[in-house]
Design a protein around this nucleic acid. Structure first.
Lengths: 164, 164
DNA sequence: TTGAAACAATACTTTTTTGTACGGATTTTA
DNA sequence: TAAAATCCGTACAAAAAAGTATTGTTTCAA
């Protein structure tokens, strides 16, 4: 379970836009400069974000990019989904097989799928509730939040729901 | 954030071994048959699991594979780590950059890293507590468990730790 | 002892992901 | 109107992941 390059870099670019003053735009060269990426690569991300209608563009000289909505109204899930094209989540794992079989061998009785389902379900839930606005606060602030959430959750698990 | 093919298929093969009667082994051709994978591909996974000492092997005719410990003593994290070689977790994201810069541009003040840290931290926590024994129960049973864990966690998030 | 069936290991091919290059379209400004 | 700076889009190259092929070693059993 890895974070893809598109997710990582694309999210960074989106966060750059989130910290932008209202009404202003940021050009691809500027974003590239700030993030230490090539202009062409940044353009690729921004095109994806634009097609998902998360970003609006201004063409021509003095043009650039801006978020099409308020940072607090854009969830990280929306951003990540836009960058990933279409990630296979939930029960789409069942379509993964190789030549020999026509369908997943485990059809009917599968304990692995619910496991992946929970994990990806959690990721979706979490990224749905986090917004770009959350990512432009100072590091310590967000770190405290995430830490407390994590410990709460671990506490729930320790209560014995899992191992039993 | 995607599940890799190695994780998916390798875990399936490990589960096949987990449901094996004590003292018996399962050969690569047999595993391949049961999972609908090629023998060569299965061999690749098993080699990784063997090198991580999660699996013991018997060579020669009538040989095969078996778990080197009890299913309940092998966490899914161990299995997934063995299959992934070395996945970049936690703050290793900071080492991801391209040509222009020598280090992550965001060094010192980064709100994205804590976000990824929490997410991957959760995944690690969860996969550490799940074992192969959990994956050989009937589907409904594990589904109920995972569902309740997830709802507990969402409840915690709803309490307002995240959005503030 | 010899052949068959299995693991062991590495090399190879194919596919996907990652990242770059380049030509065209749009808008501002001089 | 023309040049400059920008977005737009696709095509291309490089790297990594996925999956296959092959050769060698071990063990059992006839």
């Amino acid at each position: 379970m890895n974070v893809t390059a598109l997710e990582e870099y694309g999210l960074r670019c989106a966060v750059q836009l989130a910290s932008l003053p209202e009404g202003t735009t940021l050009s691809a060269p500027e974003i590239a400069e700030r993030e230490g990426l090539s202009i062409e690569y940044v353009s690729k991300f921004m095109l994806l974000l634009k097609r998902a209608e998360l970003v609006r563009t201004v063409r021509g000289i003095k043009g650039g990019f801006a978020l099409s909505r308020q940072p607090a109204e854009i969830s990280l899930k929306e951003v990540l989904d836009a960058l990933n094209g279409r990630k296979k989540s939930g029960s789409e794992f069942c379509k993964s097989f190789t030549g020999k079989s026509d369908a997943c061998v485990r059809f009917g009785s599968c304990s692995i799928r619910p496991f992946w389902d929970l994990l990806s379900g959690y990721v979706e839930e979490f990224t749905s509730r986090m917004t770009l606005a959350d990512l432009i606060r100072p590091e310590e602030e967000i770190r405290d939040k995430t830490r407390s959430i994590a410990s709460d959750h671990v506490g729930q698990m320790r209560k014995g729901e899992l191992r039993s």
